[in-house]
Design a protein around this nucleic acid. Structure first.
Length: 197
DNA sequence: AAGCGGATCTACT
DNA sequence: GTAGATCCGCTTC
């Protein structure tokens, strides 16, 4: 796969997503080893925020790659890594991780949660790391950036399945996780998704 | 200017 | 395993 700076870069999110498993996302002294991700394939994917084209909310998705796209849902912040070239709108949702550094601080951010569950679920992962909408657009490969992404150890085994909570394109297996990881969130189909498929 | 849906989480049974 | 809380952004009036 190319040079050291583009290890995460394939434009097709179905390829990029599993490559992010095992990578390390860090903010403010706290690090998380990514254990679960979902691919969102830009404006051709009806489940993606980029579907239907550029709006004020999703503009980071259509920007340059290696940026952090954040969005709010039900009072929670969720984090995505933009993996496509400028103008395409593809990204990978970081759904869960294992805290590997800054454990004390992560616990403070997630009072009452068990260690394996500190970054379980996209909203919880952001809370554990302290990621908020103020971090939107951060350049993940820039040393100066508050949020950074680094390559990690290769992962043992990868499983895949349908994406969690999406009402459209609910049957494609674009969720990937490290097999057997306790931090992986439970699958729940959207109540609005059509029956089976 | 207002309504509605959603890439969720926690608590409770 | 299931129900309910909760609020921002997009669509429509």
């Amino acid at each position: 796969m190319g040079d050291a700076d583009s290890w995460w870069l394939p434009a097709d999110e179905r390829v990029a997503a599993p490559m992010l498993l095992g990578a390390v996302l860090s903010r403010d002294g706290i690090s998380v080893r990514i254990t679960e991700v979902e691919a969102y394939a830009g404006s051709v994917d009806p489940a993606s925020h980029a579907f239907g084209g550029l709006t004020n909310r999703n503009r980071v998705m259509f920007g340059p790659p290696a940026r952090l796209y954040t969005y709010l849902i039900h009072t929670h912040t969720c984090a995505n890594v933009i993996t496509s070239p400028e103008g395409v709108g593809g990204g990978v949702l970081i759904r869960a991780g294992e805290v590997t550094a800054g454990l004390q601080r992560a616990r403070l951010n997630r009072p009452g949660a068990r260690d394996e569950h500190l970054a379980r679920g996209p909203g919880n992962l952001c809370r554990a790391l302290g990621i908020t909408m103020a971090d939107a657009g951060a350049d993940l490969l820039d040393e100066e950036s508050p949020v950074r992404l680094a390559a990690g150890e290769p992962v043992e085994m990868i499983s895949s399945g349908p994406r969690v909570g999406v009402s459209r394109a609910a049957d494609v297996h674009w969720r990937f996780w490290i097999t057997g990881e306790p931090s992986v969130s439970a699958y729940r189909r959207s109540p609005r998704a059509p029956q089976i498929g």
